[in-house]
Design a protein around this nucleic acid. Structure first.
Length: 822
RNA sequence: GCCGAAGUGGUGAAACUGGUAGACGCACCGGACUCAAAAUCCGGCGGAGGCAACUCCAUAAGGGUUCGAUUCCCUUCUUCGGCACCA
């Protein structure tokens, strides 16, 4: 019998076909089995799979395959986040309708994913651009409208002039568009919003539930983004007697207020006619987000001429407009305490405003003339009326209480988080189900009329304007209320809406409802979610928000959608993330062609642990390929040794055979631990390499005996399933080579015998004062006392301790003896 | 500026609760096989010293705790990530 070549291309296609025919990865609700829902962030169908996808989905696939072998009923679905701008840009460029472009991309990418042998249940496939999916976006929108969680308002919004659309705050960080990096400008528009701020507390509280199983970094980023701060809303007064409320987290400094500042957008300013003030406001408003929030932002302001009265001490202070005060936070106005706030200090210095010390250090009092900046640390209240002498931390609470008791203020919590603006002035997205009637106003599309279908036969006319705005057949409709003429909303939803609940749809993708409650109850929540860290705030926050809404609508049983989260690192080449612009992209197809999918998968897992960045290395891929070939050759060469029904009496084995067998059981133990507990696949693979090295080290005639055959057979039976989740085609093929008729995909995860995981002989170390002086091999069942005895008897050790005072002796079972001498 | 993570050979990385630093791989060097090369198999591979068995040094730098520190604590440096007028 000639040894067969490792012909990965044929082998991989063969097994992919078999898995498909046998429906090996089909997931069905089965209440007698424990479920495991594994989800990887679904891709945007941009055209081709990139290495980042390969890495993400390889990590997911090893989890899915391993869990199946451990007896779990696994749901492992895949779909397409298929609305979004690139489809429109492609349409404008080569006049291909976005529907066609997207559908073709999906087909191509699906083939690529299949070629990698991922164990998806393709019967669950969803595409967010399909009406039976986005219908439920619209349905949720209407539910949210009913609950007051969706609303429309005119607001200053982030506008990307290149994408010609509005962006959410989360998408316009640092004043640039998250997609194209263009400078974002502010524009007044009427927009639909989701009231995510109503869920700020819930989103924070939920962190406690998931904290242990989410990366700390993601939780921290979300916490910072929500930005909860507790403080007091204090009612200052205008001279006219009108309330002038401000928010402060430092009520302990309220006696130190020497001026007030309001945002340029503040409505009070409409009353000011001073042309200098109006000019200043105009100037600030015309600045872009970048200018206004840039690094070396200069604090600027101008006196409005108005005076404000401090309710705590009756002092009259001037009111300024300042470019650094934000209308969107608190009340759009602040009390300025230059003595104890760094920004206020700088502003006061610039405009020659008075500075007052109200918190001091008794041991070394502050000197106003010597202060270079505000004093913001702890201290004792001074010049603070009845609070003088109190520790300032204590005063925060006491002054807040005083304000409430005297009706001059109220304790309040503020968030950095803003409501989620979801209107997009773009075509390729889910239509917002609203009808505008001149008589009846904004009317939601009735449930029975859903979905509002996005027309797919569109003409882009080569520009970025949404074709919907020039399609009367889409726009013109009748009012569901009065039956009169009405028009449809032409804005579409932010595509992040699509991905905020897709995990639930996967549980029943053909449902006539949003999803089948029974199926969702069985599968949800997602047990393990895997994706990139770049979604830490946007997607993962929105998805949690939606999950909570669905819970509150009685549709889901859990508030938190993702029990465990793994954020995998990037794929790096030559020190930078693979990207077209850097020209350091490696095409997965080429590598698969050259080495096969199993090698690519193996390399992706071996080169680095999942959470860290992975440095691409052509040589490293070759190394992974070599490892598979090494196994292949050995197994092919000795395949006649395999006995299906072997039995082993450990005591009858030769020393070499025993050692090899112990290596096998150790490997199973360590690999299981690495995969199950640690999700660290690089070390799991390293262990398997050690086993193969041990296999090559044993003299061949040790295998060609009756007991040797049994040992070899056990290795085949247990090692192949162990490697199967990583190199599924390769191991199925070898498994078949040995005459097995079953699929490894259906087999159980190998068990190990704890007794066989301990090597018979181990090396222990003798130390003097913590320094290694001697190493010896001993039987692994040695006791601590025996170890100590051996240490004293050791020639080298006894020489070194001769005549010295022994302070103490530490023995660590199976590891070392340390003798401390003086 | 604030918050967080990381820094280990030529290189990707191991060392999971403090206990033999560098497992496993890549690169490199040597050997076997070959007419030769490739592939493969075997061996070596942190630095310094020594013919040698061995000795000393070494986990960004410095200090501390400990019998013992890559691991815990403090200081400093560097890199990466997040937040950044949030009152």
């Amino acid at each position: 019998m000639a040894d067969r070549e490792y012909n990965f291309n044929d082998i991989e296609k063969k097994w992919q076909k078999i898995w498909e025919e046998k429906k090996s990865f089909l997931s069905r609700v089965n209440k007698s089995k424990q479920k495991f829902y594994l989800l990887e962030m679904f891709p945007y169908p941009s055209g081709r799979i990139h290495m980042g996808h390969v890495r993400n989905y390889t990590i997911g696939d090893i989890v899915a395959r391993h869990k199946r072998m451990k007896g779990f009923n696994v749901l492992h679905p895949m779909g397409w986040d298929s609305f979004g701008l690139p489809a429109e840009n492609a349409a404008i460029k080569n006049n291909t309708p976005p529907f066609k472009w997207t559908s073709e991309n999906i087909e191509n990418m699906k083939e690529q994913l299949k070629r990698l042998g991922f164990s998806y249940d393709w019967s669950c496939e969803i595409g967010t651009y399909k009406p039976d999916y986005y219908k439920w976006n619209q349905w949720i929108f209407i539910k949210m409208l009913e609950k007051g969680l969706a609303y429309k308002k005119v607001s200053s919004v982030n506008w990307c002039p290149d994408c010609m659309t509005v962006l959410a705050n989360e998408q316009a960080e640092n004043g640039v568009c998250w997609r194209c990096d263009s400078e974002v400008v502010q524009k007044e528009l009427e927009q639909w919003f989701f009231k995510i701020t109503d869920y700020a507390e819930d989103l924070l509280a939920g962190h406690n539930e998931i904290e242990a199983n989410w990366p700390e970094q993601v939780i921290t980023m979300q916490r910072n983004w929500i930005g909860r701060s507790t403080g007091v809303k204090v009612n200052f007064k205008l001279e006219s007697g009108e309330d002038f409320p401000i928010f402060t987290t430092r009520p302990d400094t309220v006696f130190g207020v020497t001026f007030m500042v309001i945002a340029p957008e503040h409505p009070l300013l409409n009353k000011i006619s001073d042309p200098k003030v109006q000019e200043f406001i105009k100037k600030v408003k015309s600045q872009s987000m970048i200018d206004r929030t840039s690094e070396d932002k200069e604090k600027e302001g101008i006196d409005t001429g108005l005076k404000i009265i401090n309710p705590f001490n009756g002092e009259r202070v001037p009111l300024y407009v300042g470019n650094f005060v934000l209308m969107g936070y608190g009340t759009g106005a602040i009390m300025a305490v230059p003595g104890h706030d760094v920004r206020d200090f700088a502003f006061a210095k610039k405009y020659n405003l008075p500075i007052k010390i109200v918190i001091d250090i008794p041991s070394s009092p502050l000197k106003l003339e010597e202060m270079k900046t505000a004093y913001t640390d702890e201290g004792v209240c001074v010049n603070s009326g009845e609070f003088t002498g109190m520790n300032n931390l204590e005063a925060i609470e006491k002054i807040a209480e005083y304000a409430e008791k005297n009706s001059i203020g109220k304790k309040m919590i503020n968030y950095r988080l803003r409501d989620w603006g979801i209107s997009r002035q773009r075509y390729w997205g889910c239509p917002i189900p609203i009808i505008y009637c001149d008589k009846c106003g904004e009317i939601p599309v009735p449930e029975k009329d859903l979905p509002v279908i996005l027309p797919t036969d569109v003409d882009f006319k080569g520009d970025a304007h949404s074709p919907l705005t020039r399609m009367p057949e889409f726009i013109n409709t009748t009012c569901p209320h009065c039956g009169g003429k009405a028009r449809r909303e032409t804005d579409t939803m932010d595509t992040f809406v699509d991905s905020s609940w897709y995990y639930a749809r996967f549980t029943s993708p053909d449902s006539e409802n949003i999803f089948d409650k029974e199926k969702a109850d069985y599968w949800m929540p997602v047990d393990q979610y895997i994706g990139g860290i770049e979604h830490a705030v946007m997607h993962l926050l929105y998805a949690r928000f939606f999950s909570m809404i669905l819970y509150d609508l009685g549709l889901l049983n859990n508030r938190e959608p993702f029990t465990k989260l793994l954020t995998q690192g990037m794929v790096i080449k030559d020190g930078a993330k693979m990207s077209k612009s850097k020209g350091n992209v490696v095409d997965p197809d080429e590598i698969i062609q050259k080495y096969g999918a199993d090698t690519v998968r193996l390399f992706m897992l071996f080169a680095s642990p999942p959470v860290k960045d992975l440095e691409w290395s052509d040589k490293g891929v070759e190394g992974s390929f070599r490892f598979l070939n090494r196994i292949w050759r050995f197994m092919q060469k000795h395949r006649e040794l395999y006995i299906k029904d072997y039995s082993i009496n450990h005591e009858q084995l030769s020393i070499e055979q025993k050692r090899l067998r112990i290596e096998l059981h150790r490997t199973i133990k360590l690999v299981s631990h690495d995969i199950e507990e640690r999700m660290q696949y690089n070390t799991a693979i390293a262990r398997m390499m050690e086993l193969i090295n041990a296999l090559y080290s044993i003299p061949e005639d040790e295998l060609y005996t009756d007991t040797g055959k049994n040992v070899f057979s056990e290795i085949v039976d247990k090692f192949l399933p162990l490697l199967n989740p990583i190199a599924p085609h390769f191991t199925e093929e070898l498994w078949e080579t040995f005459g097995n008729k079953t699929l490894l995909a259906d087999s159980e995860w190998p068990a190990f015998d704890e007794k066989l995981t301990v090597r018979d002989e181990i090396e222990i170390v003798f130390q003097i004062n913590g320094k290694i002086k001697s190493k010896v091999n001993v039987s692994s069942d040695i006791t601590e006392d025996e170890m100590k005895k051996m240490a004293y008897e050791n020639q080298k050790i006894s020489e070194l301790i001769a005549g010295k005072e022994i302070v103490k002796v530490i023995a660590v079972q199976g590891k070392l003896v340390n003798i401390v001498i003086r």
